[in-house]
């Protein structure tokens, strides 16, 4: 299974990364080398083997449903690149006519 330049472009889009043509080629080669190496896993028969997502035998871990104090709003917003009126400020989410021009 080889990853193509188009697939790398698709993955970059999924990961919200903007990469140059040159990076695209480089990443394609490097990811192929890594995936080729990873293909050695195929030589193992894993039928009937349960996956391990986590080593601890934990199910859901609950705490008492009691009110706890949160961090103060100004401290939470102190790291925000832009904040306004107690909220994070971001550029338009939906493409407006103005933004698309």
């Amino acid at each position: 299974m080889k990853i193509t330049v188009e697939e790398v472009a698709h993955v970059a889009q999924l990961a919200r990364l903007e990469i140059t043509e040159e990076e695209m080629r480089l990443y394609t080669d490097q990811l192929n080398a890594i995936l080729e190496y990873a293909a050695r896993l195929d030589s193992l028969d894993t039928s009937g083997i349960q996956p391990t997502a986590h080593v601890l035998p934990l199910k859901n871990v609950f705490r008492e449903d009691i009110k706890k104090t949160c961090l103060p709003l100004d401290e939470v917003l102190a790291n925000a690149p832009r904040a306004e009126g107690g909220m994070f400020r971001v550029p338009p989410v939906l493409e407006t006519e103005e933004a698309s021009q």
């Binding site: 690149p81 971001v90 550029p91």
Partner: peptide
């Protein structure tokens, strides 16, 4: 993603800002 902390590259729309 540039929303809550750290670096933000300003952009006209949200997806571009993320990227």
């Amino acid at each position: 993603d540039g929303v809550q902390y750290g670096l933000r590259a300003e952009s006209a729309n949200l997806t571009d800002m993320y990227k």
